[in-house]
Design a protein around this nucleic acid. Structure first.
Length: 561
RNA sequence: UGCCUGAUAGUAUAAUGGUAGUACGACGGUUUUUGGUACCGUUUGUCUAGGUUCGAAUCCUGGUCGGGCAACCA
């Protein structure tokens, strides 16, 4: 059935290559993160693309860390990236590092110098920038451009040997200073950085630039399809130039439009700022669009893969509505989450005709979406219950199918009750709701013949456990914080996190992290892997349930307070 | 005033010269011991002006608008 789906442009390219017999029909892709931050949902799109393409066409995918800038990179990031890719459900063929190729890359540089295609430049960064010209004016050569091969060889060896301080010299390609493509105006190949590298330690003090590392790394690994995002389109000419001059395996680069999600930001730089300035707890804060944040929030790998499949791939800039992501997680959790009851904003309900001190044990199935319900759990029932404050109205609206004096509802998995009166406290708030129950209406053995419109959830007061419940809202108040005036952080949503205390049914003490639970009528929740403990349960709200009532109520201008 | 890219419902994404379709959203309805789910239905689109053609979202030309490009970042 998924075969009926039309091909995206990358699949078309691969299919054409295969049918043309290119590389003997072999497909090898790579996912090339720089270990300078955590992976986010945008990377998930790239991961699904690279691994998905290879899988679909019988190929493999390498995980290659693009670690050519030691001052920004760290093993902690390497570890998190590996964990996230695995968690998403993908297996890489080889775990590789651009730094594995430092020796090889150095040889490539020497080869280019010998061909007269690279030179050592003593200019400062500012001078080089100036000499590159502008998009409308060609660059101008400096005196270093005409250095002899021997001098360049010696100077480059001295750079490697650590004879110069950071920034004193760079190695540049001798390409085309007049090219309309700025990237071809004698791009930098190597710079001096006396810095510790997370893998090579202090073995090197010169490091290759992205453009002099990525394409060659692809070629060394014999990557057939090197897939990256649109901002690398102008780099493609350089990518191919180096491969050609070095006569390497002809890997080819293809670009797609990166994912943008509304009400969040999708750049490692900005996410790092949120972490460092304490706007969020950490990279895995459940409000973050990071893979680890989504995981902690309760998203499943399947839902994220499904999302990546649904958003499609093309070359036009896009802004995906978060409602699609929410749809994907709801759809997954609806089929897998076990149903439980929890009251988030409690008000006391007393069943006046139920004997004091008596307890009833009721049954509730785990998952009504599955044949057999996946078993169930026991739910204690008693005379006094917590119910949701919003499920009662002093003066009920016409289509309010919940409680109010004279109205009847079913208590989920229990009995039908009728509200007779309510009691207010000294401040005028509803303090107690008094109802009577119908003994013959017990769920599963209802002989009352009564039908009610509404069903509400509840928790028995003497049996209830408490839990900290964290309710999340979008991180930003505006759809595209990066495009607004001023600093993007001015648009942070001050109400993105709301921590409350709730009452939960006893069985929820058995909840495990990583599993989704549907708090009936309230949403999907999961145990917080970081803060929850046996002494203090902490649940994160993954996503709310769709709420047709509140939509209808607000649309009709009806307020329920 | 340079080069590279792109433009199809609110948001994404198909249609590869031959009936503009799908998903999400929104709206309405049926079912329901979750105002959830499921199911049914409705709504809105080819940036613009010419040209080629029996026929154009698709090909050509001009324009408009969006994104990217001048880091010792990737």
């Amino acid at each position: 059935m998924s075969e009926e789906r039309s091909l995206n442009f990358l699949e078309e390219i691969v299919e054409e290559d295969i049918s043309a017999g290119k590389h003997g029909g072999r497909v090898l892709t790579r996912f090339p993160p720089e270990p300078n931050g955590y992976l986010h949902i945008g990377h998930a799109k790239s991961i699904c693309l690279n691994f998905g393409l290879a899988k679909r066409y019988g190929g493999k995918t390498n995980l290659r860390f693009d670690d050519t800038n030691p001052v920004k990179e760290d093993v902690a990031y390497v570890d998190s990236i590996k964990e996230d890719v695995k968690w998403l459900g993908f297996e890489w063929a080889q775990e590789l590092y651009a730094s594995d190729y430092f020796d090889k890359l150095y040889e490539f540089a020497v080869a280019l110098i010998k061909k007269g295609l690279a030179y050592v430049d003593d200019s400062t960064a500012e001078e080089i920038a100036k000499q590159k010209g502008t998009p409308t004016e060609p660059g101008t050569p400096n005196q270093y451009r005409s250095r002899s091969v021997d001098e360049n060889l010696q100077l480059f060896a001295d750079m490697k040997a650590g004879k110069y301080p950071d920034g004193a010299k760079v190695l540049r390609a001798k390409a085309d200073l007049a090219s309309p493509n700025m990237h071809l105006r004698d791009p930098l190949m190597y710079r001096i950085k006396h810095a510790h590298h997370h893998r090579t330690g202090h073995a090197w003090c010169i490091y290759p630039m992205y453009d002099f590392a990525h394409g060659q790394s692809d070629a060394i690994e014999q990557i057939t399809h090197s897939i990256c995002t649109l901002e690398f389109v102008p780099h493609r000419a350089l990518y191919e130039w180096f491969i050609e001059q070095l006569e390497l395996f002809p890997s080819r680069q293809y670009e797609f439009a990166r994912l943008n999600l509304n009400y969040t930001v999708m750049s490692k730089r900005k996410l790092l700022q949120l972490v460092e300035e304490g706007h969020v707890e950490d990279w895995d804060d459940p409000r973050m669009p990071t893979i680890s944040g989504l995981r902690r929030r309760g998203y499943t790998p399947h839902s994220i893969r499904d999302f990546c499949e649904r958003i499609g791939v093309a070359k036009r800039e896009n802004m995906i509505d978060v409602s699609l992501l929410e749809f994907c997680i709801r759809e997954d959790l609806n089929k897998t989450a076990w149903r439980r009851m929890a009251v988030l904003d409690p008000v006391k309900l007393v069943i006046t005709n139920y004997p004091e001190g008596q307890t009833d044990t009721l049954f509730g199935e785990n998952n009504p979406e599955v044949e057999g319900g996946e078993g169930g759990r026991e739910i204690p029932f008693s005379r006094e219950l917590w119910i949701e404050r919003e499920d009662f109205m002093e003066e009920p609206l016409k289509k309010f199918f919940r409680l109010g004096v004279g109205l009847s509802v079913r208590l989920k998995n229990a009995y039908i009750i009728t509200c007779n009166e309510f009691v207010k406290d000294s401040e005028g708030n509803v303090a107690e709701i008094h109802c009577t129950y119908i003994p013959e209406s017990k769920s599963g053995s209802d002989t009352s013949g009564i039908h009610v419109k509404g069903t509400i959830h509840w928790v028995s007061i003497p049996h209830a456990k408490t839990a900290e419940i964290r309710l999340y809202d979008r991180l930003f108040r505006v759809e595209d914080p990066s495009s607004e005036d001023g600093d993007f952080k001015e648009y942070l949503n001050p109400d993105s996190l709301n921590i409350i205390k709730g009452y939960i049914e006893p069985d929820l003490a058995n909840a495990v992290a990583g599993k989704g639970y549907q708090f009936i009528r309230k949403g999907y929740f999961s145990l917080d892997s970081k803060h929850s403990s046996a002494e203090k349960l902490v649940f994160n709200r993954t996503v709310t349930l769709k709420d047709g009532w509140s939509q209808q109520a607000s649309k009709g201008g009806l307020k329920s307070s």
